[in-house]
Design a protein around this nucleic acid. Sequence first.
DNA 1: GTGGTCTAGACCACC
DNA 2: GTGGTCTAGACCACG
Lengths: 138, 138, 138, 138
Amino acid sequence: MLIHVDPGDELAIYDQIVRQIKFAIANGIVLPGELVPSVRELAKQAAVNPNTVARAFRELQIEGVLETVRGTGLAVTKAAPKRCRSDRLELIRVRLRAVLHEALQSQLETAEIRQITDEELSRLHELATHTPRNGSRE
Amino acid sequence: MLIHVDPGDELAIYDQIVRQIKFAIANGIVLPGELVPSVRELAKQAAVNPNTVARAFRELQIEGVLETVRGTGLAVTKAAPKRCRSDRLELIRVRLRAVLHEALQSQLETAEIRQITDEELSRLHELATHTPRNGSRE
Amino acid sequence: MLIHVDPGDELAIYDQIVRQIKFAIANGIVLPGELVPSVRELAKQAAVNPNTVARAFRELQIEGVLETVRGTGLAVTKAAPKRCRSDRLELIRVRLRAVLHEALQSQLETAEIRQITDEELSRLHELATHTPRNGSRE
Amino acid sequence: MLIHVDPGDELAIYDQIVRQIKFAIANGIVLPGELVPSVRELAKQAAVNPNTVARAFRELQIEGVLETVRGTGLAVTKAAPKRCRSDRLELIRVRLRAVLHEALQSQLETAEIRQITDEELSRLHELATHTPRNGSRE
DNA sequence: GTGGTCTAGACCACC
DNA sequence: GTGGTCTAGACCACG
């Protein structure tokens, strides 16, 4: 499970980690009972401070997505996949709603908004296609 | 020119004000040479701290959208409308791009994203229709 | 609102703060809408690191007991008193239950347990009476 | 001598084992000179890591409750029963005191505390009666 | 090895 | 002034 963090993002680093782990669980990349990467390991991989990772994990623990296995690590709970799947949609939806609200408020027409959305989607799609996983083609 | 501020929004209050003023200028609600409301007046109307309004105005001055008219107040510059019109699209676009990026990264399909967008748009549209501008019909 | 922290306690410092603030709210020492002491102030008063206080506050915020007032501080929510009152009993009850469970498991008789409880209660009561608030008589 | 461990308990697993062994000795379930179960056996029975059991035994050796019998195992010392009997009360007392202290500090009345104690005691007693030792009646 | 806690100090955004 | 985030580094308990 790889986590990529963008320090320039509007979201806090710990929140980016929280979300990406939820997405990974929602998509079955880690299964219930399995351990997520250790704090130190994930911190090294994502090049952030271990405390920041720990904070993300704490949040996930409070939400019941992860549980500690004493002296062993953090495991995905049984209830996590279901919760993460519904969370995934909601997390996106909330952010999207805020942006669309502002767009409408700024007098943009619905048609214009749809067009911009499509433009951005295809731009992102292209980007993803040309730099498959690690940007090796760059 | 009415400003509505949502303290719960992810955007800072001063930023919400900045953006709404730009939108108003882009849409010709205030024209070049016209004065924007005073700090105190706008602060009262939007129920925020005067310092916050001042901060927003300072930002707009730096960007060349507003200019001081000695002893009178702040006026919309001649160059403002054009700049604000192009800004408007870009401001929305940047926020939208970030959300769409996360959506794709979370393995949502393009089709799903379009569907959610449409759902949210119609929900917001309905909301706007039923509580026109200030909720006076309630 | 004074917070006293015991570094030797089995409970983490941040948890002691969380609990004491809940107790203060439950007992009406701070009312809804009022601000709790600032992070820096409480940190100084209780002689702990500001981060530790911040962590306690974050926890209380997640639980809906406190809410941020941007740039101003943290306020007690409207729903807090009710929640804290019921929490108070539950927090105590859970700890008490664990101890009593161990006592019974160790073959202590119910009567003995009651007796120890009474002994400890009166000892604590005495202690509190003789060192009223700040131990000035010492 | 059966050991039951609760991973969710606030006490460390090794500490739960230490305490239960002391209780067993205090109650004469194992007598001086008798061997306690081997690390491996106890680990299997309680479903915990052998290291954890070893840690508990080490602790008990340091306290002079157990002693090694070369090539044979760990035996209860002659001095153990007396020490464990007095320990038993003290171990319980210390935990109980901490909880009662917090209860008083939270402004609960002595009478209320006694009532909660009785409620919890009878609840635990009932539970114990209905699922005698190992839940065989279920 | 693991996570949990705490300290210290820095920087930022907001009001 | 306020809270929020992040880094760095330390120590502890657990397995």
